[in-house]
Design a protein around this nucleic acid. Structure first.
Lengths: 155, 155
DNA sequence: TAATGATTTGGACTGAGTCCAAAATATGAT
DNA sequence: ATCATATTTTGGACTCAGTCCAAATCATTA
């Protein structure tokens, strides 16, 4: 945890970002919680720092994304989710019922998806893959139970 | 256009939705504009119908999505986009500069992506693929032009 | 340790979408 | 064709996620 802090400090500095308590706490938070919303991250940070402004949370998370230290995903019916796992071209498996997000490695190997069937002249730099379905916990054990639950962002 | 209307009426009825001018106009709109926001659709519909409430637009678009007659995608930094091309497992190519959305056929054939590397016990029903890059129009012709433009949703 | 540029703060604001209850309308039975 | 009923539409208030702004604070460097 202490070593995390100095790691994170180094990480920030090496990307030209100055080191502040807010930024350290947010780096720590997204490393502990793999797919977290800005609001959830705010709550977590407030437990360690006591206080942080909403604006700082967004400033920091956006700066981290911009520097390639975090990734932002935007699933339907959910606020943006932030994660610190970057640069490995992994994808996401999202439960339609409970909204749970799980990482999956790329299906075809490393950076395979970058090959679209026809690039239409685009220069493609990322292929974002989201698998939608129902997680083990939400799958009805007895087959005639209808799934009527609306997906809900966890709070 | 007239035949479109009766097609659309039939389509609605066959999915248990009653036929209203608002719904017909919206079906027409998403068939004319492949990736349209709710607000843009409202504007278009108002040109033909004179008036429509925001709520009806959302009611209808959501109903269409629920019945499988439309699809909703939610790219980062954009309001939801609606399209009437459904059931063919196609994907999207989005320009980071201008936000332009282009359809691409699935890279590997029909419904291939449904195979994640490890499904983690999920029952997967859809693989959503978004390719990010820069479209031909936004690619700088002279290579030292920096791309600083922020992606902007078209209005 | 002081100067300065970057960061943080909080309050106002925007944009996308939902909630609600009343009015209007499409449908199915007669 | 008409009526009764259930469905849709309306518009206005509201929520939620995120941004804008200017003043105050803080981290870095010289």
């Amino acid at each position: 945890m202490l070593s995390n802090m100095s790691n994170h400090a180094t990480l920030l500095r090496s990307h030209g970002l100055s080191v502040t308590p807010q930024r350290l706490a947010l780096l720590q938070t997204i490393s502990e919680y793999p797919h977290i919303t800005a609001d959830q991250a705010t709550e977590v940070v407030r437990k360690s720092l006591g206080t942080i402004s909403r604006q700082s949370v967004y400033n920091t998370l956006n700066a981290l994304v911009e520097k390639g230290l975090a990734r932002r995903i935007q699933p339907i019916d959910s606020p943006a989710l932030f994660e610190d796992r970057v640069g490995d071209n992994h994808h996401h498996l999202i439960c339609r019922s409970c909204g749970d997000v799980t990482d999956v490695d790329c299906a075809v190997g490393l950076r395979p998806c970058l090959q679209a069937s026809d690039d239409n002249g685009f220069i493609i730099d990322e292929a974002e893959v989201t698998y939608w379905g129902e997680c083990p916990k939400c799958q009805p054990k007895i087959s005639n139970v209808r799934k009527t639950t609306k997906r809900k962002v966890k709070t």
